[in-house]
């Protein structure tokens, strides 16, 4: 297993190298940049800045400089924030992460539960009801869903704050602060969960339905095992296996920010920063962040394979 992981880590190198080329040249070959976009600069100042940020070098040389810095762990320098890209990401990513993580846990928990219940009560009223709700949630545009939820819970009922991450003007510390952030998180998490839940629920329902038809489920029942054991020990484990891939896809997204919910709820996350960087052409930030996500994606793939190896004995021996 250890040798396998090391081997896979080596395989990551060409993939990431390719990704870096793609990311760098896509952004570098688009006409215009942060300096051109600023109308207030004089031609002289522009020339100075060009020199300062190395824009006068040939693009290939610039790529290698960028790559060298990447290898040193330096993601570049954000022109808009006048801070290292790593620092900008660090400042905003955790607020995105907590919302995404809470929503991920909630989504998977509900989807697995609903999937199991619908599968063992297939075509019952409950199953039909869930199906309708799920399709309704899937079909509703996120901005609309977000606004409706804000209207109900924040405006009409006044239970929860409508946006932001902390109450304006507040000065909480310790638990007070945690509680304040948690309150602000509820609505964004709710919307994100409602958006994600539909597909995942259908997925688990289909998987479970596939598994409960299998011969080994009949064997488990013929042994006289309790229905609970049959469903959870024999059924769920097999139904969860194919979900490992799906789960690994979700991991980079934990750090990717959720642009729409961040905008609706005015949540200071990385998704909103990413959008903003586009509009001002802060390419170093965009490149650095995209590269960061690329690394996470490749790592998640590796993680998925390792998890498969642990969870599925049929995969384990092949290595």
């Amino acid at each position: 297993m250890k040798g396998y992981v090391v081997k896979r880590l080596f395989y990551m190198i060409p993939t990431l190298f390719g990704a870096s080329i793609l990311i760098f040249f896509l952004y570098s070959l688009v006409p215009g940049n942060f300096i051109d976009a600023d109308q207030n600069l004089t031609a002289e100042r522009k020339a100075e800045l060009y020199e300062l940020h190395g824009y006068n070098e040939p693009v290939v040389i610039r790529y290698f400089i960028w790559l060298k810095n990447l290898l040193k762990g330096d993601l570049g320098y954000s022109l808009q924030f006048q801070l290292p890209v790593g620092e900008v990401i660090g400042n905003y990513i955790w607020s995105s992460f907590i919302v995404a993580l809470a929503s991920l846990i909630l989504t998977w928990f509900i989807a697995i539960l609903v999937g199991i219940v619908s599968a063992i009560r297939q075509y019952s009223i409950w199953d039909t009801f869930i199906t309708i709700i799920v399709f309704a949630a899937m079909a509703t545009p996120s901005f609309f869903l977000g606004l409706v939820i804000i209207k109900i819970f924040a405006v009409d009922l006044g239970w929860l704050p409508a946006g932001g991450m902390i109450s304006t003007g507040s000065n909480f510390t310790g638990w007070e602060y945690v509680k304040d952030v948690a309150e602000h998180m509820i609505l964004p998490v709710l919307v994100l969960t409602m958006l994600g839940i539909g597909g995942l629920t259908r997925y688990f329902r289909t998987n479970m339905l596939e598994v409960i038809k299998q011969d080994f489920m009949r064997t488990a029942r013929a042994k006289g095992l309790k229905e609970r054991v049959v469903i959870f020990k024999h059924g769920l484990r097999n139904a969860l296996l194919p979900a490992i891939t799906l789960f690994s896809f979700e991991l980079p997204a934990l750090f990717g920010g959720a642009i729409i919910t961040e905008q609706i709820f005015n949540w200071p996350g990385i998704g909103a920063i990413y959008m903003q960087a586009f509009s001002v052409r802060d390419y170093p930030l965009l490149m650095g962040f995209t590269m960061f996500i690329a690394v996470l994606t490749v790592l998640s793939n590796l993680l998925a394979d390792i998890l498969y190896g642990i969870a599925d004995p049929r995969v384990r021996v092949k290595k």
Binding site: F216, R218, T219, L225, K233, H234
Partner: peptide, 21 residues
């Protein structure tokens, strides 16, 4: 009673056992 006083074996041994246990 099942699996205790009355037991059963099936036609397809390849699929009658749980692959992950």
């Amino acid at each position: 009673l099942r699996g205790n006083d009355i037991s059963m074996i099936f036609q397809e041994p390849m699929t009658s056992l749980n692959p992950v246990l």
